[in-house]
Each structure stands twice: as C-alpha cells, then as structure tokens.
C-alpha cells in the first residue's frame, strides 16, 4: 500500500477519470463564470471579456451589500438555532442505547432521502393561513374559548390565523429544517469520540451535569461544533429554494438576486461577480477558521 505512488501507471489509471470529470465539469465552468465576472454584455447572448471591474463595483453598492448582510444574518440565525437544537439531539443519540442509536441516526438522515422541493412544499402546507399549524392553534383557541364560556367568562373573539408563511420567520424555519442534519451529524461524531470517563471524572469531582457540559463536553467537542457551524452556515448562506418559496418580498437572499441576474435580468457578468463575491467571502471565513485551528494546535 505504501508504494502506490510509485506505480505510476496504476495511479494514472485510477486518477484520470475523476480528474477529467473535475476539470471538465467543475473547474472549466467555474473558470468561465469567473471570466464572465470581468466582462460586459455585448449582445443578447454574447459576453465580451473586457477585464472590467464594473461588475464588482456594482455588486458592492449599498443595495447589494444590504442583501449580502441580510443573508449573513439569516444564515447566522439559522446556524445558531441549529446549534442550540442540534446539540441536545446529538447528545441524546450518543447516550442512547445501542439498540436505538442506529434508528435515531436514521431518523436524522431520513430527510436527505426526500427531495428538497417536496420537503419545502410540505412545510408550506403546514405554515399556510389555512395550514395545519393554524388549524391546530385555531382548534385549541376555540376549545379554550368554549372552556371560558363554560365557567362563565367572556369568550375571546374569533381566531385570527397567524401569518406564518412568506416572511423571514418562514425562511429561517425552513433553513433550520433543511440544515439541522448537517449540524447534528458532525456534533454526534465529535461527542461520540469523547472519552466517557472524562464526563464521569467531572461528576466525580462535584460538577453537576450542566457544568460538566459547559466546562468539559463543549470545549472537547469544539472541533465538531466548529465544523458543524461551517457546514451549516455555508450552504445556508447560499440558500436559494427556501427563501424563494417560503420568503416574502423582503426576505430574498443573495442567491435569489444572483438567480435573477442569470435569468430575468440576463446580466450574466453581474451575476457572476455576485456569485464570486459570495465565494470569496466563504473562502475567507474558512481560511480564518483553518488559521485559528492551526494556531490553537501550536499552543496546545
């Protein structure tokens, strides 16, 4: 196994196919789009690569920066909620009995087997004005009202359905729903590796469960927490379908703007510039994290 690098023919045979695939269908298209970001529309379908920075300049206008900022906030909130909800879930799976563990993990991964579009439409069915959520709350409201009349109190007015769909709330809820597994799985992996006797040692030394969680479990699971944050935050930042279907007029995210440039606005160079700006931002975030991890390693 060690000298596989030396048998070049074999190495080439194995590596050629994936390398070709990556080059043809990933690097080349990316390169083309990257070049477009320095171009101008010459005709309806023609783009002239003129080396201009005008697209980037336009992308940095307050209107678009605002949408960028908003996307960052929405993705940030989504990630925070995923972490708060996902951590106890991951912890519960780690401490579940061996009989239950695979089923719980399957439950976390099950949504991956269903198309995102279908899941999003299902969520719409729940959140609509006449949806299941409103129906349930309305039913509870009516029962509560009749209970009040029963004991002689004035009944509250008719139920006003909550506006749960087509707003930022729906977008965040949808993003959390979609991205929760991305958070739970790395957390689970990190927590499962944790030496149980460390937790027992902390309890033995007088710490309760909460302090053990904060002082021992969380710091030791930090690498898992950070990778969970990254792989939740990055796709949430570039989310397109969820804000498009669940969001209102004011909840569009950067991916929706990009899509519009490529389609309705037919401004590919500007769309390309926006795309790459998003990518630069993501890369910088990951690079900073990697750098910090390296520093921490040196210190440790």
């Amino acid at each position: 196994m060690e000298d596989w690098k030396r048998s070049r023919a074999l190495f080439a045979a194995v590596a050629t196919a994936p390398l070709t695939w990556l080059t043809l269908f990933f690097i080349v298209p990316m390169g083309v789009i990257w070049l477009y970001s320095f171009g101008t529309n010459a005709g309806l379908t023609e783009i002239e690569i003129s080396g201009t920075l005008a697209n980037y300049k336009k992308a940095l206008e307050p209107l678009y920066l605002g949408i960028f900022a908003k996307s960052l906030v929405v993705a940030g909130i989504t990630t925070a909620i995923c972490l708060v909800v996902g951590f106890p879930v991951a912890l519960a799976i780690v401490f579940a009995s061996d009989k239950w563990k695979p089923w719980l993990l399957l439950g976390i991964m099950l949504p991956f087997w269903t198309n995102l579009l279908i899941r999003t439409y299902a969520l719409m069915a729940v959140l609509r004005t006449e949806g299941y959520a409103n129906q349930t709350i309305g039913w509870l409201h009516d029962r509560f009202g009749s209970l009040l009349t029963l004991v002689g109190l004035p009944a509250p007015g008719a139920y006003e359905p909550l506006h749960l769909l087509y707003n930022n709330f729906a977008v965040v809820l949808g993003l959390v729903y979609v991205h929760l597994p991305f958070m739970v799985l790395p957390l689970y992996a990190a927590l499962d590796r944790l030496d149980r006797s460390l937790i027992e040692a902390s309890l033995d030394l007088g710490a309760g469960h909460l302090r053990t969680l904060l002082l021992i479990v969380a710091p030791l699971a930090a690498p898992g927490i950070i990778s969970g944050i990254i792989i939740t935050f990055v796709p949430a930042l570039g989310a397109y379908l969820t804000p498009d279907l669940l969001g209102g007029t004011d909840s569009q995210m950067i991916a929706n703007v990009i899509e519009r440039q490529f389609k309705r606005a037919n401004n590919w160079p500007f769309g390309a510039a926006l795309s790459f700006l998003l990518m630069y931002a993501t890369f910088i975030a990951i690079a900073i994290q990697a750098l910090k991890a390296k520093q921490a390693e040196k210190r440790g």
């Binding site: 006797s197 460390l198 027992e200 040692a201 902390s202 440790g300």
Partner: peptide, 9 residues
C-alpha cells in the same frame, strides 16, 4: 480512573 481521565484541555 483506569484511563486517568485527565482533562486534555
């Protein structure tokens, strides 16, 4: 503890 369980951080 048998593994000592010294907190590594």
């Amino acid at each position: 503890f048998q593994s000592y369980a010294v907190f590594p951080h």
